[in-house]
Design a binder for these strands. Structure first.
Lengths: 187, 187
DNA sequence: GCTCATAGGCTAATGGCATTAGCCGATGAG
DNA sequence: CTCATCGGCTAATGCCATTAGCCTATGAGC
């Protein structure tokens, strides 16, 4: 017999993530979550403050999932190899969950709920650049460039913004090489 | 005395754009537009098919405005100078209307309403790269890289995604130099 | 085993918004 | 002068978020 999972904030976020995967962030609605949980809409307020908070929590989950994959990809590597692995992992995650990416907050540091998850992800990026020995502003600029590249590509690709998928792998390779070259100049 | 403008689709889009500038794309609502036009909400349906179409039209307007500024920036220039001007104009537009940028469609070619405006903007980018003499796929990759850079940066900056505005000009400069270097390798 | 606070679910009600249907007056072409 | 059309309006529907207030089971503490 089926034992219904007790509803917890984490479960609600799980369900929400499923809805986002299927219908996009705009499709994420308390009513839809409630239906999947076989519960009346107002009941959700016992687990989550409101729709805004739920969206923030979904953002945290996406951030954490990505960070975990990045960490795994970079572990045991350094230098260009690590950077390449990180950029590959970023794109891979977004391709695995295209709709999901729109739930990733661009400004996690501005939201108390997302702050630590956001900081953790940025830390991984900084750590990936560690072996280049960049100091102060140079490190910040390098991390920003990296973020611009991966986010720019991922956001356009996941939106279907590149006319044809034709040669997208090559384009991404070129972005990686371009970035690695810029790192060489930095050091 | 005040002569009230006759309501036309173009005027409705103007008003909508004002709302987007103030409250963001999520704040764009037919009810809000109607109020500013001093008209009942259903009246808008005489000028616009529905909220979705209005958003698409706003997207076209943004696309066109940007393209116009890009064209002006690039006119009479070539090579690195032209690319630098284009990238500068892109960032400048977004900084002039931060909220607005979220209304710029990432996949204009998929929407019949936005298709030509999107194609025109991409044409300007290709034209800016013309003097490098890139052929076939190389030209496509170069244009994609350019788009990734400008969009990635603009989208993060306009969302307030960079921790501190500290040194953002420098970061953007580095992105430009990085891109110019990648073009040198292409040729 | 009894009691009572609480966790977690529910119904009812409110208010915002999109959208549709159907009405109506002004206006301009013929 | 007439009439179709344009552009506005009101009424009604339905979806959604959110709040208020109710009710029950359960488990901690006695």
């Amino acid at each position: 017999m089926v034992v219904k999972k007790p509803l917890t904030p984490a479960v609600v976020v799980d369900v929400a993530l499923g809805i986002v995967d299927e219908h996009g962030l705009e499709g994420l609605t308390l009513a839809a979550v409630a239906q999947r949980c076989e519960v009346a809409t107002p009941s959700l307020y016992k687990h989550v403050a409101n729709l805004g908070e739920l969206k923030a929590l979904v953002g945290v989950r996406v951030l954490d999932d990505m960070t975990e994959r990045f960490t795994a990809a970079v572990l045991g590597r350094g230098g260009d190899e690590a950077v390449t692995a990180l950029m590959g992992a970023y794109r891979a995650y977004v391709n695995d969950h295209p709709k999901r990416y729109s739930a990733m907050p661009m400004d996690p540091l501005h939201d108390p709920i997302q702050k630590t998850a956001g900081a953790k992800q940025i830390d991984v990026m900084f750590a990936t650049l560690r072996s280049y020995g960049l100091e102060g502003p140079a490190a910040v600029h390098a991390a920003r460039r990296l973020r611009v590249l991966v986010h720019g590509f991922a956001s356009i690709e996941s939106a279907g913004g590149f006319g044809l998928p034709e040669g997208l792998d090559d384009t991404y390779d070129q972005l990686i090489q371009m970035y690695l070259a810029s790192l060489r100049k930095d050091t």
